[in-house]
Design a binder for these strands. Structure first.
Lengths: 341, 341
DNA sequence: CTGAAAGCGCTAACAC
DNA sequence: GTGTTAGCGCTTTCAG
């Protein structure tokens, strides 16, 4: 391939500077500003209840800037007894634009309160969450999936002050997606519902919850529980699932998520079936490519935008010793109606 | 929706225990084991060159376990002058199964060396990387995208010892994807290549690099530079791009990534065109749904698996003061041949 | 209003 | 081999 011309100024694989460039400490700032470290600490954190002369303030700020002073987070955490880190644990599932956006907004909202969000992709092999939490010294950890009792205990033990799974006592977002999907289908006159489970083990627990929700909706409508069939993201496998459904006269299927739904669509294609006439399918997530299928996928999506604000608020309140706000429970997916159901 | 039955033992929105459950310190362990803190530190980190009696070791370990001792990471980082945190900066793009897997493996490889990986989704609004780096006190930061000089400098200033963008001096993986895509098409006899750019601003820089690679391949083959058309993930927009290509007698198009490729396929459909006969399209990433399109998408994918091992190795070496290993450069996407080109 | 002093929990020279 | 002793950089009472 040969050496290519590099854009100037773009370092590639850089080592530390020869002399590790000792970071300026708060003592340095104090010296330059001609005040004590205490004063520096006060103005930099603008401690309430302190009345520092404007001139002194200015000098300190000026000194800090000129030295490119960056408080040492570990030292601060050690002294203050708490870090400004919030850890977000993400399940092993594709992170689409929706979730990215949620994360971005959550990070922004948290940043406004001086908190830093980092994420940890949980996975089978990876370090357990409590260990990561301890490593980064997180003050709070947020989970997309509920934590089991052991994990929660360990998290507390590792110093995490609060734990905020999305699932709350009042409502289970996972359940509600299944519920909403099934209810939508039932509302369109379907009396025999199918459920497309992912074959992937990692998604199992979440899928089971969603299925439960769908089953609840069926029960309430007085129809049979969903006919469950599993599939991976392979047309052939999905085709088999489709056979099961048609054989049992299912007319509408809730897919675990959009990817699964797209697989179902592909499976239908190999049978020469078309949605929604032959079989209606509804997905979940509204992934970017959901509108590019034939027919465009009817799906649901979490309104992640305001969720992020609420989560941020709850965490800040929690860290401040308050009680997490109740509205956290009121998270429901919204319908994105297209043409597949 | 009504109250639903909760699985027992699954906490929902948990506050810290009433009494914050003072974590055991190394002094506690020392007391219980009847030794000094130094000894505790030695056995717990099993410091090389120390020869501690097996019996003492056992007592210390036992005491640590019984107290559920967890070293305080901030204190450790402060004293040792370096944390065990590696920060991975991810661009604002969908994280598919491939990247997830890469991250998981990277985390595992790093964990084997006592390092903890956390990730940060970079985005427009979000806190700048150096700030996050400082907050978590990362020892190293890895980027999927290259860092500009300012960022790199700031990163060092924030205490990050090493910076390892994937792009190296010898080879540019981004460029090479464009190159490979175009070369593949050229190899199949196409003499007039199109390039599908994403409309999304965030992807722009990456896309430009890939396009450069494609242009290089064209130049080397002695054919015209790619005909560039932009599209978002909407069939109508993509259809317009397709018109541009067909109007300029393009017969094969390289798409920025699979999602863009799928959009192109959708755009072709609205024109009644079929791949690869009317227009060949090749994607990049091998996203899960790439095999579910009609026709299944021919695409490329990074062999992330061994990349992760090499990155981990390089980082460990770098942290130990060594020189990052050269083979980092040799990262090339592999072809996933299906039917769209 | 500002400074002195005491740690936060841990590591690492250096003695014993 | 193990304990003693300094700090790491910062926050935070408590005097001045």
């Amino acid at each position: 391939m040969g050496p290519t011309v590099r854009k100037p100024g773009v370092p590639c694989c850089e080592r530390a500077m020869d002399r590790p460039a000792k970071r300026a400490t708060s003592a340095d700032v104090a010296r330059v500003a001609g005040v004590s470290r205490t004063t520096v600490s006060f103005v930099l954190n603008d401690k309430p209840g302190q009345t520092i002369p404007a001139e002194t303030r200015r000098r300190v700020l000026e000194a800090a800037r000129s030295l490119a002073y960056q408080p040492h987070s570990s030292a601060r955490a050690l002294a203050a007894g708490r870090s400004d880190i919030v850890l977000l644990s993400l399940p092993a599932m594709p992170i689409g634009a929706g979730i990215s956006r949620f994360i971005e907004e959550l990070a922004t909202a948290l940043a406004e309160h001086g908190l830093t969000l980092v994420t940890h992709l949980s996975g089978a092999q990876v370090r357990p969450l409590p260990a990561v939490c301890a490593s980064v010294n997180a003050s709070a950890v947020i989970g997309f999936e509920p934590f089991d009792a052991d994990t929660a205990r360990a998290l507390h033990g590792a110093g995490a002050v609060f734990v905020f799974p999305f699932r709350t006592a009042d409502a289970d977002p996972m359940r509600s997606v299944g519920r909403l999907q099934a209810a939508y289908l039932i509302g369109r006159g379907h009396r025999r519902i199918g459920y497309a489970m992912p074959l992937s083990r990692g998604l199992r627990a979440m899928a089971e919850d969603r299925l439960d929700g769908a089953a609840e909706a069926c029960a309430e409508a007085g129809i049979d529980a969903p006919v469950v069939a599993s599939t991976d993201l392979e047309a052939a496998t999905a085709a088999r699932a489709v056979s099961e459904w048609t054989a049992r006269s299912v007319t509408g299927v809730c897919a675990f998520n959009d990817e699964t739904a797209i697989a179902v669509l592909a499976g239908m294609r190999t049978h020469g079936l078309a949605a929604p006439a032959d079989l209606a399918v509804v997905g979940m997530d509204d992934i970017p490519t959901a509108r590019l299928t034939v027919p465009p996928l009817t799906t649901f999506a979490f309104a992640l935008a305001d969720l992020s604000r609420r989560q941020a608020k709850a965490i800040v309140a929690g860290l401040a010793g308050g009680v997490p706000s109740a509205p956290l429970a009121a998270i429901a997916p919204r319908l994105v109606e297209r043409a597949s159901a």
